[in-house]
């Protein structure tokens, strides 16, 4: 993995990798990917991917309103809120 790839991935994940850490992070992740790459030695042609250990299907919920309005309690957990809204820095809309 190259440093430029780390930058791209960090941007996608909204994480900052400072120039000072870049070498260390790149090296560590490189080692992890090398370990992971052991998988490539195995032929998995025709093997169905397993997303979930459970051999079960999705349960369905009745279309009922079960949740009450808890706005004041929940909004109080937010780092910034006003007039019933969560507040973030101005979003320059597309």
């Amino acid at each position: 993995m190259k440093k430029s790839e780390i930058d791209k991935v960090a941007t996608l994940a909204r994480l900052r990798v400072s120039p000072a850490e870049a070498d260390e992070v790149t090296a560590r992740i490189g080692e992890i990917l090398a370990m992971i790459d052991q998988m490539q030695a195995v032929d998995t042609t025709g093997v169905e991917p397993l997303a979930h250990p459970l051999d079960a299907v999705q349960r369905l919920r009745a279309d009922e309103v079960t949740e009450a309005d808890r706005r004041d309690e929940l909004l109080a957990l937010a780092p910034s809120n006003r007039n019933g809204l969560f507040v973030v820095p101005k979003v320059i809309d597309p």
């Binding site: 809204l85 507040v87 973030v88 820095p89 101005k90």
Partner: peptide, 8 residues
């Protein structure tokens, strides 16, 4: 909603 911020 606000002058310098966005409400959600």
């Amino acid at each position: 909603a606000f002058a310098d911020e966005t409400g959600i």
